[in-house]
Each structure stands twice: as structure tokens, then as C-alpha cells.
């Protein structure tokens, strides 16, 4: 099978995956009247019994579940994903999602850049200096990274870089929030800031991104470093590395040109999945830093049982995960010529 055939087949499968996900999430969010009433986000304590029934009827929650699903499906095809609850100010779910999604993309990109730029070198150093001090330090960082709760580490960053830095009279980073977007062109705030020449905004957005990005990347860079280390150690024991060394190549060339490319395959998988999961929004990190991304929104929506938003969120997230897996598989083909589909 050719690569493009493989991609097409996977994309067709994606449709079925999304259908299955939508049925599952639909049932889970709307199927339990007494356990988790789907209309709860639209009701307030001052509504009368009649008004409550009107809300239920207006949203179609009084119909049988399978009918509700098909009505929902029809509306989605018309681009109507339903309204959000009070947390989303009653705006259409898709508007809320896509207003916030660029912010999550930004955060994911920055966190991934940090993860790669720290995690991979850390892994290489660990492997090359196996069981020596750099390896121990790298191991401690990795262990600390994936064993530290993200909300706690986020708060620690705020405490040091925002609170204590300002107490010590040092330049400090903002603790939370994000600046308001002045102009929307592409939707990506930093890119739009650059396009409109609003460098003040770009800088402001950037400094607000630093702490949440570090917080997010700290969790994953440990994993990445350990994976890179393990695969580097394995590759470094291969015959062709011994061959390269025996040819008299410099150690730097052996490691970076011959070993690294092959050692990176599992790292690519991990980074791809990590990036995709970040695109789904880092709920806790966005909560701690009040970052207005989809993760924060999902948390608010779940808190109110807002099925419209949760459905949209889950489907987009499922799409991203499937596409990311596909991208990783395709990347293998380029990284390792032996892999064929």
C-alpha cells in the first residue's frame, strides 16, 4: 500500500471514530436524567417550574435520546452546536470554542518547544554520560517533572517568578491571565499582533505564556528525556555506531549524525501525542494561570454539565488525537526508510 492510500484509509476511519465518540459522549452527557441533567446549565434558581419546562423543551431535552441525537446531528451539520450555559455567557458553543482554541494552540506550541529543546538534550546527555553526574541530575529533573502535581508546580512558579521576584525588586512575570486581543486576523493572538505591528501586545502575550508553558513542559520533558536516553543507549550499542567510532569519527558526529536520528523515533511519537493532548487544553494549568484556553472552558463546562460544549470539545479533541497519531505514523516513514505501510 502506498503512503497516500494509507492516509486516505485512516481518514475514512476517522469519520467512524468520530461517530462512535459522538454517540458515546452524547449518551454519557445526556442519558442520565437524575444523575446528570443536561439542561442544568440553563436553569437558574429564580426560574419557575413553567420556565424550567420551557427551557427543557427549547433545547429538545424532553425528546427520546435517539431523537435528540439525530436533531443534534442535523444541527451540527448546519454549524449549530448549541448554546453554552452561564459559564460561556450563553454564547454558541462553537464560537466559545474557536475563540479560545488559538490560545490553547499558542500554549501547546510554546510548551512543546520548551519540552523538545530541554528534554531531548537532557536525554542525550544522560545517555552519553550514562550513570555519571549529568545522568543523575537529568534523572532527578525527569523524576521531579513527572511526579510533581501540575497545579502545585504552577503555583510554585507563580510564587517564585511573580511574588518573590517582585518582592526582591527583580523583573517579574505575570502570575495569571492573558491580555485582551485587539485585532483578530488569523485568530492566533501572537501572530495577529505581529501582523498588525502591535508589538506591545505580542510582548504582553508572550510574558503571560512563559509560566504556564514552563509548568506544562516540566511534566513532559522528564518523560521525553527518559525516552531519548533509553533509545540513545540502545542505539549507541548498535554495531553501526561501533563501526562509526572505529572509522575514527568524532564523538559529536557519531552521536548527532548517526545515533540521534534513529534514537528520535520514539521521541517523535511521544512529542506528537503530547502536543495533541495539549491541544485538548491543559485543564489544570489553564485553571491555575487563568489562561483562557479550551481546557479552562472544558473545566467550567463540565462543572455545569454543559453537554453542548463537552460534545464539541470531545469531538475536536478526538479528531486531533487521531490526526496526531496519523502524523506520527507518517513521520516514521520519513525517519525510518525501513517502515512501509
Amino acid at each position: 500500500m502506498k503512503l497516500y492510500e494509507y492516509i486516505i484509509r485512516r481518514l475514512i476511519l476517522l469519520v467512524f471514530v468520530l461517530l462512535a465518540v459522538s454517540v458515546l459522549i452524547f449518551y454519557l452527557t445526556r442519558g442520565f436524567e437524575r444523575g446528570f441533567a443536561p439542561w442544568a446549565p440553563y436553569i437558574n434558581e429564580k426560574m419557575t417550574a413553567e420556565q424550567i419546562e420551557e427551557v427543557i423543551k427549547a433545547h429538545g431535552f424532553d425528546r427520546p435520546l435517539h431523537e435528540q441525537y439525530f436533531y443534534w446531528f442535523r444541527d451540527v451539520f448546519n454549524g449549530e452546536w448549541g448554546l453554552t450555559g452561564t459559564w460561556g455567557l450563553g454564547l454558541p458553543a462553537n464560537r466559545v470554542f474557536f475563540n479560545r482554541f488559538p490560545r490553547t494552540v499558542e500554549l501547546a506550541v510554546f510548551a512543546t518547544i520548551l519540552t523538545i529543546s530541554i528534554g531531548i538534550p537532557l536525554g542525550i546527555i544522560s545517555a552519553v554520560k550514562n550513570n555519571k553526574l549529568p545522568d543523575h541530575i537529568s534523572r532527578i529533573i525527569a523524576l521531579a517533572g513527572y511526579s510533581t502535581p501540575s497545579y502545585w508546580f504552577g503555583f510554585l512558579l507563580q510564587l517564585v517568578f511573580f511574588y518573590y521576584f517582585s518582592l526582591w525588586g527583580l523583573p517579574n512575570l505575570p502570575s495569571s491571565g492573558a491580555p485582551s486581543i485587539a485585532t483578530r486576523i488569523t485568530g492566533l493572538p501572537i501572530l495577529d499582533g505581529l501582523l498588525t505591528g502591535n508589538l506591545g501586545f505580542v510582548w504582553n502575550e508572550f510574558v503571560h505564556l512563559i509560566l504556564p508553558s514552563i509548568s506544562l513542559s516540566f511534566i513532559s520533558l522528564g518523560f521525553l528525556a527518559r525516552i531519548v536516553r533509553a533509545s540513545m543507549l540502545e542505539v549507541l550499542r548498535q554495531d553501526y555506531i561501533t563501526m562509526a567510532r572505529s572509522k575514527g569519527l568524532r564523538e559529536r558526529v557519531v552521536i548527532y549524525r548517526h545515533a540521534l536520528k534513529n534514537a528520535l523515533i520514539p521521541a517523535v511519537t511521544l512529542t506528537g501525542i503530547f502536543f495533541a493532548s495539549l491541544l485538548g487544553g491543559a485543564m489544570i494549568t489553564e485553571y491555575v494561570f487563568s489562561w483562557p484556553g479550551v481546557g479552562q472552558a472544558a473545566l467550567l463546562a463540565v462543572g455545569q454539565g454543559d453537554s453542548n460544549f463537552i460534545l464539541l470539545y470531545s469531538l475536536v479533541f478526538a479528531t486531533i488525537i487521531v490526526l496526531a497519531n496519523l502524523a506520527v505514523d507518517v513521520a516514521y516513514a520519513f525517519l525510518d526508510p525501513r517502515i512501509k505501510y
Binding site: 437524575r34 441533567a37 440553563y42 436553569i43 434558581e45 450555559g85 454539565g305
Partner: peptide, 24 residues
Amino acid sequence: IVPGGQQYTLASRHQIDGYMGGWI
């Protein structure tokens, strides 16, 4: 324990024995 909106609904339909009520 349920989301507020759900409690109001069930109360308005008289389906629950008792609930934590409030008035502002």
C-alpha cells in the same frame, strides 16, 4: 449532590423529598 440547575428542575417537578433551598 447535583448541579444547581438540576436540583431546581427536580424540585420544580416535585421529584425530590427535600433540598437545600435559598432565596435572595
